[in-house]
Design a protein around this nucleic acid. Structure first.
Lengths: 235, 235
DNA sequence: GGTCATAATTGACCGCGGTCATAATTACAC
DNA sequence: GTGTAATTATGACCGCGGTCAATTATGACC
């Protein structure tokens, strides 16, 4: 592989092949996304996607080896857009809880249109990693996303927001499963953003304070519901 | 529908039709379950199931409208077996945490063989309820299961184990999503039962105590890891 | 320009999940 | 027994996801 020499002169160090490849992928992805939103995921056939993208059916499978790979791609896109919008986790400020709420509020906001599609994408994400036949699926973004949560947790530990004796891995996994499930159910039931926020706050409430009763004198229970409200104000 | 009259005399008030129907369903289910365990879910075709059950292909779809309906049935079976084994939630004794651990330990025990199958069944369960085309899927057991957890939570509130200001619905949903996700990952990674218990304890730890640091003097953090150990001893 | 290895494209093809019109079976009336 | 309405069984058939051998585009080297 001795790239870089003569041919790559103009545009950004990309051969014509590479450029075409990306362009084709983009065309296929766009066509698919459009069609999914127009007609639904199951209702869209690969051939329709191929037609709209103006390629042969086989070509589609060169870029997206299974139909579900589109869902993984959509999820990835989604996360990337959010990362772009709110910047790297390391730079966020505020309370740990506030950060998590913001993060998931972005997720929800972006998914509110075409809920069916995003529900499927989330499920694909949750299922991802190994499939029995040995193919790996979309692990990159999966880890990227979990990593974001983990970073927030770790920052929380540094700032004293979160118990130091906790393994961030466990906490992050718990947060992820809870919130995604909440979003999925919310997407299914078609509630308002307010509803989702209510649900999410309830879950985060438990995650932060636990289900065990506090020993009487410290951290009175009455304060809790208030905190939910004030946390929402930030967004 | 004026049933019950003449024909239903012998055996337990069942017409021949009804008996045959159940028998056929049982045969198909058994054939499917066997084949799934022998060759895997994806690798088994409906026709193979039909052959082994000695019915036509179309008949299979009379009893299980989609292939995934088998997964729902497997999940249902699974939960029912557990219910049978440990009795109705109302009658369990012990701490709330102990009950939950036992419950999920039973789940895990039953799934340890043929992990692939149970992973899929759990996923089917988590996804269940609506599918965009309007068909409902396996809501019965889903609710039954969530209801079990909710019952445990409510009992915990009565006995002072669990914060009284909590909506059992939220707590149950959180527990469910966390533990199922834990089991799914465990099934994928092929760890030992010990590993699973470790993971589950960590999650329940957070669910019970929360991620927030305790205010210094009450409930010292050092006690926590100990509790995990002692909780395991019960099983 | 021409040659060749490699990468990308393509549509004919296959297998399986799911449908449906038709046939067989059951229940019941007489 | 015979008639008949309702239920269940069945396999030919269809559509779509996914494969693959054959074809075409690309770029390195002369």
């Amino acid at each position: 592989m001795t790239i870089g020499a003569s041919k790559t002169a103009n545009s950004t160090t990309l051969t014509r092949r590479e450029r075409k490849k990306r362009e084709t992928r983009r065309r296929i992805y766009s066509a698919a996304f459009e069609l999914f939103r127009e007609n639904g995921f199951e209702e869209t056939t690969i051939e329709e996607i191929a037609d709209r993208a103006d390629v042969g059916k086989g070509t589609v499978f060169n870029y997206f080896p299974h139909k579900t790979a589109f869902l993984a791609a959509i999820f990835e896109d989604w996360v990337n857009r959010i990362i772009e919008e709110i910047g790297p986790a390391e730079e966020w400020t505020g309370s740990t809880r506030g950060k998590l709420e913001q993060l998931f509020f972005f997720l929800a906001n972006n998914s509110a249109q075409s809920p069916e599609l995003f529900r499927k994408a989330i499920f694909e994400h949750l299922r991802s990693i190994p499939e029995e036949d040995g193919r790996l699926k979309a692990p990159a973004t999966m880890h990227e996303f979990l990593a974001m949560i983990r970073t927030v947790i770790r920052q929380g530990q540094d700032s004293g927001d979160v118990r130091a004796d906790l393994d961030p891995k466990h906490a992050a996994a718990l947060v992820e499963s809870a919130v995604f499930k909440t979003i999925v159910i919310w997407l299914m039931e078609g509630g308002s953003l307010e509803d989702l926020h209510e649900e999410m706050s309830a879950k985060l409430d438990i995650i932060f304070d636990g289900v065990s009763p506090r020993t009487n004198n410290c951290a009175p229970a009455s304060k809790r519901s208030k905190r939910v409200r004030s946390a929402r104000a930030r967004s």
